[in-house]
């Protein structure tokens, strides 16, 4: 069966329970919002294939339960991720403060070169805002990552967020690919089929066509 995409990227949504990870994902994958949503138990993922500069990119986006209790199980999934969306709720100070902990979690569990991005969700709830835009930006600068405020409910910049993250991964990957195919011997060295025992980088696990 022929593959219908050029690249497969695995992304991960993390952040406190209730910040809207599942809703953001649902907005991106089905372009819908549902107020009768249920909390996430265990893990799940959704797929959406996007077009990016002429390449078809299949995004496999993993959604996890946010509660501390389940972290022993969910952190195991960090390791395969190429991009991570860190989500907080702009109407919830605590969820913003916790971003630091989530970042530490990533550093401990994900590969070092994973692309990260900060999302301040529920941005349509201006009247309930507890975390200013500036603070979000500031934190992102601190960590050297990109930042966007979104609303899953009002469908604000959710597409933009995922496209941005996907593009950054693609750029990084193509750069590495180029480097890898240039050395004296040439040829592709990064192949998905080559078993790699302890990949230092997600790049070695990219599915290439």
């Amino acid at each position: 069966m022929a593959k219908t995409y050029d690249y497969l990227f695995k992304l991960l949504l993390i952040g406190d329970s209730g910040v809207g990870k599942t809703c953001v994902l649902f907005r991106f994958s089905e372009d819908a919002f549902n107020t009768t949503f249920i909390s996430t138990i265990g893990i799940d993922f959704k797929i959406r294939t996007i077009d990016l500069d002429g390449k078809k990119i299949k995004l496999q986006i993993w959604d996890t339960a946010g509660q501390e209790r389940f972290r022993t199980i969910t952190t195991a999934y960090y390791r395969g991720a190429m991009g991570i969306m860190l989500v907080y709720d702009i109407t919830n100070e605590k969820s913003f403060e916790n971003i630091k902990n989530w970042i530490r979690n990533i550093e401990e569990n994900a590969s070092a070169d994973v692309e990260k991005m900060l999302l301040g969700n529920k941005c349509e709830l201006e009247e309930k805002r507890q975390v200013s835009r500036e603070r979000g930006e500031q934190l992102a600068i601190e960590y050297g990552i990109k930042f966007i405020e979104t609303s899953a409910k009002a469908s604000i910049r959710v597409e933009e967020a995922f496209f941005t993250l996907a593009r950054d991964i693609k750029t990084k990957m193509e750069k590495k690919l180029k480097e890898a195919s240039n050395p004296p011997k040439g040829g592709h060295q990064l192949r998905a089929s080559e078993p790699q025992k302890k990949p230092t980088s997600w790049l070695s696990r990219c599915t290439l066509l």
């Binding site: 329970s17 209730g18 107020t35 009768t36 949503f37 249920i38 909390s39 509660q67 605590k94």
Partner: peptide, 19 residues
């Protein structure tokens, strides 16, 4: 408390009883 409140608002809301 915070987690309880978040979760009850996402529990079986499609049932009339909790809608």
């Amino acid at each position: 408390k915070c987690q309880v409140i978040k979760d009850v608002n996402r529990t079986d809301r499609t049932l009339e009883f909790y809608a």
